[in-house]
């Protein structure tokens, strides 16, 4: 989606800043925001660029560097940790051949940590873009990655 088009959907008020940032970033395959985009948003909302930068830096959803098309987030909090029967992070690192925090060379996947996803009744839980997956197993993880690759090449 073009940024200009998206901005028109919102009244030019600061209260919509997070909605705009989230919606726009999600629509981009690189899942990140550029300086030029922040500048356009600042102009539209009539607020300083520094304010937007502070907001982007504060919230963990936002990124100023390009990321993979699929962001895989692994919960690192206690309920998921104690209930997991295998090491979710190591398994994903091995499957993707990247360390935690990195993006695959083909720019399809980024591996990140996340705080609790509120899915502790289905631990271990991970999130791939907007979808939370519960009760994951090594086999299920492999399957989910294959599904993403399939969607990407489709």
């Amino acid at each position: 989606m073009e940024l200009d088009q998206l901005l028109k959907q919102y009244p030019p008020e600061q209260t919509y800043l997070l909605e705009i940032l989230s919606k726009y970033q999600t629509s981009k395959p690189t899942q990140h925001l550029t300086e030029a985009e922040l500048k356009s948003i600042a102009e539209y909302l009539s607020i300083p660029e520094s304010h937007i930068y502070a907001v982007v830096a504060f919230y963990s959803f936002y990124s100023l560097v390009p990321r993979g098309k699929y962001i895989i987030q692994v919960c690192r909090d206690v309920p998921c940790h104690v209930a997991a029967t295998f090491d979710v992070v190591r398994t994903l690192e091995t499957l993707l051949q990247i360390p935690m925090g990195a993006t695959t060379k083909d720019n399809i996947f980024t591996l990140e940590y996340t705080s609790c996803l509120g899915a502790c009744d289905g631990s271990p839980a991970i999130r791939i873009n907007q979808t939370i997956h519960t009760h994951v197993t090594p086999e299920r993880l492999k399957q989910l990655l294959d599904e993403c690759r399939g969607d990407h090449h489709a």
């Binding site: 909090d77 206690v78 609790c116 502790c120």
Partner: peptide, 11 residues
């Protein structure tokens, strides 16, 4: 904004 680890009753 149910973010406290171990809480999912609001969801």
């Amino acid at each position: 904004d149910e973010g406290e680890p171990g809480n999912f009753k609001d969801r």
